[in-house]
Amino acid sequence: MKYIDEFRDGETARSIAALIAAEAQPQKSYRLMEFCGGHTHAISRYGLLDLLPAQVRMIHGPGCPVCVLPIGRIDSAIALASTHKLILCTYADTLRVPASGGLSLLKAKARGADVRMVYSADDALRIAEENPSREVVFFAIGFETTTPMTAAVIQQAARRSLSNFSVFCNHVLTPAAMQHIMESAADPDAVALDGFVGPAHVSTIIGSAPYEAFTQRYKRPVVIAGFEPLDVLQAVLMLVRQINAGRSAVENQFSRAVSAAGNIKAQAIVSDVFELREAFDWRGLGEVPLSALTIRSAYSAFDAEQKFSIAYRQVADPKACECAAILRGHKHPADCKVFGSACTPEQPIGACMVSSEGACAAHYTYGRHKVMAIRATGVAA
Rank of each mutant, 00 (worst) to 15 (best):
A235N: 11
L290R: 15
R220P: 01
L293Y: 03
W282Y: 15
L290Q: 15
I264C: 06
L237C: 11
F302T: 09
R296N: 08
K319P: 06
V223S: 04
R220C: 03
S248H: 09
I310D: 02
G262Q: 00
I224N: 10
T215E: 10
L237P: 05
V258C: 13
C323E: 08
I310K: 07
G207W: 00
A301C: 12
L293K: 01
I264Y: 05
G329R: 04
A245D: 09
S309H: 10
E251W: 03
S208C: 01
L293H: 02
L276R: 03
C336E: 04
R313M: 11
A225M: 11
A304C: 06
Y312V: 04
D335Y: 02
G284Y: 14
E305N: 09
G246W: 03
V240F: 06
A213T: 11
S309P: 00
E212D: 13
P289E: 14
V258Y: 05
Q253I: 08
G226D: 05
A235K: 08
V232I: 13
I205D: 00
I243W: 04
W282L: 10
A266W: 05
I269D: 03
R313K: 14
A334G: 14
I310T: 04
Y312T: 09
R328P: 01
V288L: 05
G329K: 06
A266Y: 08
K265M: 12
G207Y: 00
F280I: 01
A209H: 00
N252W: 03
A311T: 14
V236L: 13
L239K: 11
E305K: 13
I205G: 00
S259A: 07
G329D: 04
T215N: 06
G284I: 13
P221V: 09
A292V: 03
I205Y: 00
A249G: 02
A245H: 02
I269V: 11
V232Y: 01
I269R: 07
G262T: 00
L293G: 01
Q216Y: 03
G207L: 02
H330C: 12
I269S: 05
L276I: 01
S248Y: 06
E251P: 02
D317T: 15
A325L: 15
V338G: 03
I205N: 00
I224Q: 07
A257P: 05
C323F: 12
P333W: 13
A213C: 08
A235F: 08
A292H: 08
Q314I: 10
V258R: 05
A268Q: 12
Q234A: 07
V236P: 04
A292D: 12
G284F: 13
Q253N: 14
L285F: 11
S255T: 11
A213W: 07
D317V: 15
A301V: 09
K319S: 13
A260W: 05
E305C: 10
K319L: 11
E287L: 15
V315G: 14
L290V: 10
H330T: 13
S291D: 08
